[in-house]
Design a protein around this nucleic acid. Structure first.
Lengths: 299, 299
DNA sequence: CTGACTCATCAGTCCAGCTTATGCCCTCAT
DNA sequence: ATGAGGGCATAAGCTGGACTGATGAGTCAG
């Protein structure tokens, strides 16, 4: 049952990627700061665990087998997620010598920022980043109090006292489990039907909820929620389990859509896009690392 | 330097998710098959490693802190990638008692199948799946030889002797590193300019390459490649490093686009969509687990 | 033939994480 | 009030997995 016993640990996965990239156990071992026998043993243990040969060893080096190519790509997904975790965690530590302090809304902090921080680290490895996550008002407060250098918010407008630039868009998507009747409709859903149906929603006050309320106000607002949950993930889980339709950021559900655990329900002509903005106190254009981070997100 | 020392191992991440879900260290420990002190120690070690308190302990249970919510969501990404890895690896083992044998093209096997297999396992936990990855011809061969029950191919047509159904679409996307001149263009790229520019491509014979060759044939085919690489990942890495423009499946690059390691270059009116199809030998409609798997992918 | 690579094997050390046993705190029912 | 029960922390002891370091075998170039 526990996943950890069936999946190699992160060190082994990194080793596999290094072998794939460098073509040699020894070189991979050196790069990871372990000895060659350790790498040999570890790789062998991983192959035994998976029951598949991953690399062909030869006196001139090692190459991936066919299965190895596949496994390596799956492993890369895990390692990339781990890099994002690491980037986020480092930022969260909020070290005293922090030079770049970022404040971001929940959705951006969860799904976008870790990737940006990974990219920033390749440009400026020494920059220590600290991260605070909250709603738009909290982000604005931090910026105005001088406690953050750069903010990210999603929403319809720029909070007063701040300047900003649009760095992208986020679309709210109506989703259901694949078995739901809406998943079999031929035609797009009329907004009025969406507005009349009880949905699985985030709690009032979240950015997602605000946008939906505004968009459905013309059709007598959303109906009383079927469930009102405190986190995006909880709402996602409820929708996947078939509890009912939900409206979520497309950033949060790409994997569920790809795996068909959720399906998107088209809705006729409803403005469910919202801008993602980088923001800063009026007049204080970002400089230094904040400017670099901004450069990674907008162009 | 090694990532594994800065990111908690999978067991710890699973524990964190269980605590978040169940609201108690003891219950989480029981679910994972360890004792409560082990869970307590492990969680404490993780908090020490990250330098952040993740859960608030009280005599009535444990709740996530603000930082804990964020960390839990990043952890979930890792665990989901690990689940996909596990599903793929189990299929790869090709156990003797396998009941569902799947043959799939590389792109589908890498990026989509693991997710589907995770979903299938919730429906049919006992089904053992085996997986073979190859090009379209290899998939067709396996099916016609009775060595596979269900196939997945990407491409322009259905191989002879097979029936199939379209389960989705894949778009080929022109991408560059953010610093490339094309990334600053205002207008979409004319197809002729794309056709005249040396690109980073997969080797001839890959499905990706076939579609691109066909689409650019009208403009005198693609120019001789800048680099010709054996795997999608290698091409991706070359593009990210700024070696030049590349054309890749959108399935392979969503994370690079989100993190702005790559940017998409719009191209004016070029048919770079290709169908993803489930296929089976003519007359042998899928039944049993194959039918279930098909149900998860198409609707 | 020698040196420079590759990888595998063996023996020995060490530590991370587990279990068991215990204690404290809080709440709730008797 | 008092005990039962659930929550968590700490301490002591064990064990297995993973590392190092030394060594040997195979391949290739000079």
């Amino acid at each position: 049952m526990p996943l950890a016993h069936r999946v190699p640990d992160l060190g082994a996965l990194e080793l596999l990627l290094a072998v794939a990239r460098l073509g040699s156990l020894g070189r991979a071992a050196r790069e990871l700061g372990i000895t060659q026998p350790a790498a040999s043993g570890r790789l062998r243990a991983m192959e035994r665990q998976l029951g598949v040969a991953l690399v062909e060893r030869s006196p001139r080096g090692s190459r991936l087998t066919d299965a190895g190519v596949l496994v390596t790509d799956w492993a890369r997904r895990i390692v990339e997620a781990a890099e994002a975790f690491d980037a986020g965690a480092q930022a969260l530590r909020g070290r005293r010598d922090a030079r770049l302090r970022v404040a971001a809304s929940m959705t951006i902090a969860e799904y976008l920022l870790p990737g940006w921080l990974v990219a920033l680290r390749t440009q400026r490895p020494d920059t220590a980043v600290s991260l605070l996550a909250g709603n738009s008002a909290a982000v604005a407060g931090r910026l105005l109090a001088g406690e953050a250098d750069l903010g990210f918010v999603e929403g319809l407008d720029v909070p007063p006292g701040l300047d900003g630039t649009v760095i992208g868009h986020d679309r709210l998507v109506v989703v259901t489990a694949p078995g739901h009747p809406w998943a079999r409709r031929g035609a797009p859903l009329p907004p009025a039907e969406l507005a009349a149906t009880p949905l699985i929603l985030r709690e009032r006050g979240s950015g997602t909820r605000q946008v939906l309320d505004a968009a459905l106000a013309a059709c007598d607002g959303p109906a009383p929620p079927l469930l009102e949950l405190a986190s995006t993930t909880a709402a996602k889980a409820a929708a996947v389990s078939g509890a009912g339709p939900s409206v979520l950021s497309e950033l949060a559900i790409d994997e569920e859509l790809a795996a068909r655990r959720l399906v998107e329900i088209p809705v006729a002509g409803l403005p469910l896009r919202r801008a993602l903005r980088a923001v800063w106190p009026t007049g204080h254009r970002p400089t230094g690392p904040a400017r670099d981070l901004l450069g990674l997100t907008a162009r």
